[in-house]
Amino acid sequence: MFGLTPEKLLIIAVIAAFLIGPERLPQYAAKFSQFIRSMRDFANGAKARMKEEMGPEFDDVDWKKLDPRQYDPRRIVREALMDDTPAPSAIKPVTQSAYAQRKGALPSGSVPPFDAEAT
């Protein structure tokens, strides 16, 4: 969690206790616990709403697969390169440059298309 170890968190808590003081510490602890409780309620509400909107499909979703911590670009590239599916037949090999293709597509003596709104 942001590179914070338990020792660092403990030091931060001790420094905060000294800065806040013993008089206001219970008030801030109560506010902090309310904040944590409201965040938990928010997360549970979001989960319940998602379950309600998705219906029975919610249980079929593999949530571990959608976890961004599972993202490994090396694995994705490796799987894409090792894919044995044939290339689509619609792709034609390039035999001439794009300029030559465009030059041959327009009949000689005709005017190339012009879009007045694009300029």
Rank of each mutant, 00 (worst) to 15 (best):
K92V: 13
G104N: 12
R78K: 09
E117I: 06
P113R: 04
A100F: 02
S110H: 09
D72I: 05
G109I: 06
E117Q: 14
G55W: 01
T95M: 09
Q96F: 08
M82R: 10
E53M: 13
D41E: 11
D41H: 05
A105V: 03
T95L: 15
A100E: 13
V61I: 15
F58L: 02
S89V: 10
D67F: 02
E117F: 09
I76S: 07
A46F: 02
F42G: 00
P93Q: 09
Q70G: 12
V111Q: 07
E57M: 01
N44Q: 10
A98I: 14
S97D: 12
I91E: 06
D84T: 04
R75V: 11
Y71H: 10
K92L: 14
E57P: 02
D59V: 04
R69V: 03
D83Y: 09
M50N: 12
D72R: 04
K64A: 12
I76R: 11
L66F: 10
I91C: 05
M54I: 07
Y71K: 13
D59Q: 09
K51A: 13
A105F: 01
E52G: 10
P107V: 12
V111M: 14
E53D: 07
Q101I: 08
P86M: 01
G45L: 09
E52A: 15
P56C: 01
K65F: 06
Q96S: 13
S97K: 10
E117D: 14
K47Y: 11
T95H: 11
G45H: 07
V94I: 14
W63E: 09
R69C: 05
R75A: 12
A46V: 06
A80S: 05
Q101F: 05
D67H: 03
D60M: 00
F42D: 01
W63Y: 15
M82N: 11
R69D: 11
R78T: 07
P112L: 07
Y99N: 12
D60I: 00
N44V: 03
A43K: 13
G104V: 03
A100G: 02
A100D: 13
P112S: 09
K64C: 12
P68E: 07
D67N: 15
L66A: 11
